[in-house]
Amino acid sequence: MDAAGIYARQSDALGRYVQLGVAGDRVVSVSFPETAPENADSDHPLLDRVDGYLAGAEDDLADVPVGLTVPTDQRAVLEAVRKVPYGEEVSLERVLAMAAGLDPDREEDVETARAALAENPVPLFVPDHRVRDGPSGAPRDVAAFLRDLES
């Protein structure tokens, strides 16, 4: 992966930018701003892959290294979501069953999972849009586009 920095490119499919924050060899943030920061570079191989994915190429992006700086219980949720294959959807209950140390029957764990998805720092690479009854770290219209894209 290229040097650390902020990378952003306009996505015609989304009608907004895709912005990546990269630190070392890991993606640490993904956002979808209306405009790109002035200091953002538009040239990054991951942006090329994202462009292809948004254009319909079947790419689960699961091999992209991510840096998750979230609490351990939320990390377990996001790591479970990362294992959901391209084109599949799972329930929040299923995610909790897949996440180490969490119980789908405990309301506290359900709230932890919902918070992890809503605060997901790297949507696309942790595909929370594949959780049919959970929130997303991406804007609602972006998550809906991604669901439609993979269906």
Rank of each mutant, 00 (worst) to 15 (best):
D128W: 07
V84E: 04
G56I: 11
P85L: 14
A55D: 14
V77F: 00
G5Y: 03
V142R: 02
E111A: 14
I6W: 01
T72M: 14
A4H: 03
V142S: 01
G134I: 09
Q74N: 06
P33V: 07
Q10V: 13
D73R: 15
D133Y: 07
E38V: 15
A8N: 05
V122E: 01
T35G: 00
D128E: 08
R9V: 06
L78N: 03
L20R: 06
T35Y: 00
F32L: 09
V28A: 03
R130G: 10
E111Y: 12
A138I: 14
A8T: 07
P65Y: 08
D41K: 13
R114M: 07
A118E: 12
G56S: 06
V122M: 06
F32Q: 02
A23Y: 11
P135D: 05
T112E: 00
D51E: 13
P37T: 05
L46N: 03
L46R: 03
P104C: 08
D105T: 15
R140A: 15
D48E: 15
A36I: 14
L20C: 09
A4M: 07
V27E: 00
E119I: 05
Y17Q: 11
Q74K: 15
S136D: 11
V50T: 02
L96M: 12
V77L: 01
E79V: 04
S29P: 05
A23I: 15
V131D: 01
L92V: 03
N120Q: 08
L14Q: 07
P71R: 06
E111T: 12
D60E: 12
V126R: 02
A4E: 02
A113C: 08
V22Q: 01
R140W: 11
S42T: 05
D51R: 10
D109C: 07
L14P: 08
E79G: 02
H129G: 08
D51L: 03
A118H: 11
H44R: 08
E89N: 08
P135C: 09
V131H: 04
D128R: 06
A3C: 09
G67V: 04
Y17F: 15
F125P: 06
Q19E: 12
V30F: 01
G56N: 06
R26W: 03
H44P: 04
F125M: 11
V90R: 12
V18P: 03
V66D: 03
V50P: 02
F145G: 00
V22S: 00
A144P: 07
H129Y: 14
V28S: 04
V70H: 10
D41T: 14
E93S: 13
V66Y: 06
L92P: 02
V70W: 10
D60P: 11
D60K: 12
A97G: 14
P65K: 11
A8G: 07
R130K: 07
V70Y: 10
D109A: 06
V30W: 01
T69G: 09
R130T: 13
L96C: 04
A99E: 01
M98D: 14
A13P: 08
G21I: 13
F32C: 07
V30D: 02
P121Y: 05
A113G: 04
M1Y: 09
D41P: 10
S151P: 05
D51T: 08
V81P: 00
V122W: 01
H44V: 08
